[in-house]
């Protein structure tokens, strides 16, 4: 194409550039301000450059247990990531065939994506409250002392909290798997089967390598969506707290750049994960181009 660029191109290119500044500018501002000197405030100018606010962060801000929240979020994020990958790949395989309830499951996933998170969060909280009452009533009815002495609630990070996150990450995972399997050529599997591969071998050595980049994508969504999740978690975490919930609470109380330091740390984790996944996908694709098909290259 040697066609000359139109005026529209230049106008839209400028618009795109402005949008990118709009998108990244504010975040860059707080990355810079988190290195504010000890005398510095929430806004410019910078009064020196230091790691003061990061040190402050690790000493703890007031009574808030930031280390605990960080650890909770990391554990939950990794768990959500693994479960999302496994369940999405399994469901993606299931949807390649007809089964009773397939349409219902698909629309439930879509609904879970677009029903307001506050509603889902409230529902999960109520569900667990009622279940708690049930357990207590059960303990009373059968005089089970263990329940009287030890039971408080079923709600927690890895029960209601995990469920709330999965209801948010699974739809993304399923949609990505749909996109992959819609373009998947079954001839590869047939070839493997004809050569005597068991179903598991076919999956492990043929299907899995082909869908690997998409799996990396699902993992990326699984971890980052959980790591940043707040709307669904707010009512569903019980006594536990995650990093975004802590951060939101801090916005109303903390008036020092320590909150920016926490923002920088959180964003750094996100970017590490995004970078790692993009690197893996690029590597797989390069490798594929190098070692891939020899079709059309002659004998």
């Amino acid at each position: 194409m040697t066609e000359r660029r139109s005026l529209a191109f230049y106008l839209l290119a400028i618009f795109f550039a402005l949008f990118v500044v709009f998108l990244y500018g504010p975040t860059l501002t707080i990355l810079v301000l988190s290195f504010q000197g000890p005398q510095g405030g929430l806004t410019f100018p910078m009064r020196g450059v230091s790691l003061h606010w990061f040190r402050q962060l690790f000493h703890g801000i007031g009574v808030v247990d930031i280390g605990g929240a960080l650890w909770n979020s990391l554990q939950l994020g990794v768990t959500v990531m693994i479960l999302t990958v496994v369940a999405s790949v399994m469901a993606g395989l299931a949807f390649r065939r007809r089964f009773f309830g397939a349409t219902l499951l698909f629309y439930t996933a879509i609904a879970s994506l677009i029903v307001p998170s506050i509603v889902v969060s409230l529902g999960i909280a109520l569900e667990f409250r009622i279940a708690d009452d049930g357990v207590k009533a059960f303990g009373d009815a059968f005089h089970i002392e263990w329940i009287w002495n030890n039971f408080t609630t079923l709600m927690g990070l890895f029960t209601s909290g995990l469920g709330a996150h999965l209801s948010w990450t699974f739809p993304f995972g399923l949609l990505i798997m749909f996109a992959v399997f819609n373009r998947f050529n079954p001839a590869y599997e047939e070839a493997a089967r004809d050569l005597g591969a068991t179903p598991w071998q076919t999956f492990r050595h043929v299907v899995l390598p082909i869908i690997a980049p998409a799996i990396a994508g699902v993992a990326l969504f699984g971890f980052t969506l959980s790591w940043d999740e707040i709307a669904r978690s707010s009512q569903a975490m019980g006594a536990d707290s995650t990093l975004p919930i802590t951060l939101r609470a801090l916005t109303t109380t903390v008036t020092t750049p320590a909150i920016y330091a926490l923002g920088t740390v959180t964003t750094a984790v996100s970017f590490t994960v995004i970078g790692a996944v993009l690197a893996i996908v690029t590597m797989v694709q390069r490798r594929r181009r190098r070692l891939g098909s020899d079709a059309g290259k002659g004998v």
């Binding site: 299931a94 439930t108 996933a109």
Partner: peptide, 23 residues
């Protein structure tokens, strides 16, 4: 397909459909 879809269906039932009904 049924056992493959089961984990996702279970999570949506427990943490989406039932909560909505409870509300």
């Amino acid at each position: 397909p049924y056992w493959q879809a089961a984990p996702m269906a279970a999570v949506f039932t427990l943490f989406f459909a039932v909560p909505l009904a409870v509300i």
